[in-house]
């Protein structure tokens, strides 16, 4: 089972909470939407998921086609 970071931008309100509390600085807000920051590492700690008020970012466990998700983060 592989863990992946998922972002649902349509629910993101760009508050920046996830980015501010990410221990790795792996997120940034661009045009009021969160995205992964180029050249950083995500350690899948889930801190962002815990504090996102809009459930727009989360860690998923993907059993099947891991590649698709792995690519996407």
């Amino acid at each position: 089972m592989k863990k992946v970071l998922m972002i649902n931008q349509s629910w993101c309100k760009g508050c920046g909470i996830c980015a501010a509390f990410c221990p790795k600085g792996a997120l940034e807000i661009v045009d009021d939407k969160v995205q992964r920051k180029e050249g950083t590492e995500c350690i899948l700690c889930g801190q962002c998921e815990l504090r996102c008020p809009d459930y727009a970012i989360y860690i998923d466990e993907n059993e099947g086609d891991t590649d698709q998700w792995a690519k996407s983060y």
Binding site: Q9, S10, S72
Partner: peptide, 9 residues
């Protein structure tokens, strides 16, 4: 980079 799911049902 991200999964932009858009307006997914």
């Amino acid at each position: 980079m991200t999964v932009d799911t858009g307006d997914v049902s």
